[in-house]
């Protein structure tokens, strides 16, 4: 216990700094992923043909092992002299988030009660009115579930980004492993886990705040 206290006394500022780096990388990636994924998912509900292809591509992306995807990023971004560091890690995380976000958005809207959709069309709503007033609000819980999955997934995968020099809590873990330092490994791992739990909890709160009770039930 005494040793832990001493370890934290020395390393606390660094752990905090790396946690913030980690959170920053993941949040930026998620924001961009949302800006791409949600509109794309919504658009796909109106274009069946494209929907199959896009969902397939997003599926394949998620099956690529994370270390391999980071590996692929290096030669590509070397072309603009940014082979390692923040940018390739950021792009990889954006790609990883696409499947849960697009798929959940698409399925959520597709699964809105067909009678509700029928009523909306029959009353004379245009496509965008139907989406904004009826389909998206009622699909919100499932869309948010996809976003939460993406966030938790990214917090985990961002650990590996330390290998390509993107910083974050992965640094503590990789250093701990190479030096055989259990304090580093444990503190890094706990910080990642805590970050994931807090992020998920926060998003759940936001979700509840912004959906009507009736829709959640």
């Amino acid at each position: 216990m005494e040793q832990w206290a001493r370890f934290l006394e020395i390393n606390a500022p660094r752990i905090l700094e790396l946690t913030l780096d980690h959170a920053l990388l993941v949040s930026l990636a998620i924001v961009v992923a949302l800006l791409i994924g949600v509109p794309l998912g919504i658009y796909l509900t109106t274009n069946e043909y494209l929907a199959g292809t896009v969902l397939q591509v997003a599926s394949v992306t998620l099956t690529i092992p994370s270390l391999a995807l980071f590996g692929i990023m290096i030669p590509i971004f070397s072309l603009i002299n940014k082979g390692i560091g923040f940018l390739p890690a950021f792009v990889a995380l954006v790609l990883y988030s696409q499947l849960p976000i697009i798929r959940n958005t698409y399925t959520a809207i597709k699964n809105v009660n067909p009678e509700m959709r029928d009523a909306a069309i029959g009353m004379g709503m245009k496509t965008h009115q139907r989406l904004l007033r009826v389909e998206i609000p009622n699909a919100m819980p499932v869309i948010m579930a996809g976003i939460r999955t993406a966030v938790v997934l990214n917090i985990g995968i961002a650990v590996i980004a330390a290998y390509i020099g993107a910083g974050g809590l992965g640094v503590l873990i990789t250093q701990g492993i190479s030096r055989g330092d259990n304090y580093l490994i444990i503190s890094g791992s706990l910080a990642v886990a805590l970050l994931a739990i807090i992020a998920d909890g926060l998003l759940l709160l936001i979700q509840k705040r912004f959906t009507t009770k009736a829709v959640v039930e």
């Binding site: 009678e115 029928d118 009523a119 829709v215």
Partner: peptide, 15 residues
């Protein structure tokens, strides 16, 4: 919009 439309399961919007 000029025709009233009522369906079986009322189709009210829960939101």
């Amino acid at each position: 919009r000029k025709i009233g439309y009522v369906i079986q399961s009322n189709g009210l919007f829960p939101n």
